[in-house]
Simulated assay, not measured.
Amino acid sequence: METRFQRVFLVSLMLGILPTFSATVLAFNVDDMVPTEIERRDVLENILDSENFELGAQIGLLSIEDFESNLWVSGHFAYHINEYFYAKALYGFSKAGTSSFEKLVNVPPLLTNEQRKLKYYGLNIGYNLLPGEVFLSKDIALNSMFSIELGGGSTEFAGNNQFTINLTANYRLFLTDWLTWDIAMSDYIFDTSVTGENKTTHNLNFTTGIAFYF
């Protein structure tokens, strides 16, 4: 009986001592691990790119209604108002080929060489849509952006200056944070009476080029 009582006493004593002992060891270990004085480090925040200006050049084809498809060269300067909207000033030129009427009927040329030169200058407002990524491989991905533009300007063609509406769909692939590869489809809409009939023409344009951001 005395032996059993001693065992119960020893178990109770151990149960009372072990938690205190464990807490003391835990506190000792935590105090040991955490320094009393934390050394502060200077952390430099990432500076986001803030290039709001864009300068680009394109080359492609312009299908001048009734005058074949012809080489097109253009340049633009743009200001990005925010992440969605931008304003773009555009200048482009081409030279009309032979009209279908001139090919079918044996008549003198409708236009002189100087009148066949087509020049356009105008201003567009663009809106960025559908930001995404293009995966060139499992380890290489490039940012991309699809945008639409609406604008107006003036087309000098056949000795006349015509008000022109411009509709453009543009796809940009960001090669770096300051360089893009652009692919665009445009429609230049203006009135003409070169063939003797007053009509509204749709002159489709396909271009590709690069743009620099600064």
Rank of each mutant, 00 (worst) to 15 (best):
M1L: 15
T3Y: 03
V8C: 03
F9W: 06
V11L: 04
S12H: 04
S12L: 02
P19N: 07
F21K: 03
A23F: 06
L26Q: 13
N29E: 08
D32S: 15
M33T: 04
I38H: 10
E39Q: 08
E39V: 11
D42C: 02
N46P: 13
L48W: 11
S50G: 07
S50T: 12
N52I: 14
F53I: 12
L55R: 05
A57N: 10
A57E: 06
I59D: 09
I59K: 07
S63L: 05
S63G: 11
F67W: 01
F67G: 03
S69Q: 07
S69A: 04
V73Y: 06
S74N: 06
H76Q: 03
F77Y: 08
A78R: 02
Y79K: 03
I81Q: 09
E83G: 14
E83P: 05
K88W: 12
K88V: 14
Y91T: 13
F93P: 11
S94T: 15
G97Q: 13
T98E: 11
T98L: 09
F101Q: 14
L104K: 04
L104I: 03
P109M: 08
L110T: 00
T112M: 06
R116G: 00
L123M: 08
L123H: 01
G132E: 05
G132P: 06
V134F: 01
S137Q: 01
I140A: 00
I140E: 01
F146M: 07
F146G: 00
S147E: 07
S147P: 13
I148K: 01
E149D: 12
F157P: 11
A158G: 14
N160I: 06
N160K: 15
F163S: 14
I165V: 12
I165E: 14
L167C: 04
N170R: 03
R172W: 01
F174W: 03
T180A: 05
T180V: 10
M185L: 14
S186P: 09
I189P: 08
D191A: 11
S193Q: 08
V194N: 09
K199D: 08
K199H: 15
K199P: 03
T200G: 08
H202E: 07
T207G: 04
Y213R: 14
F214G: 11
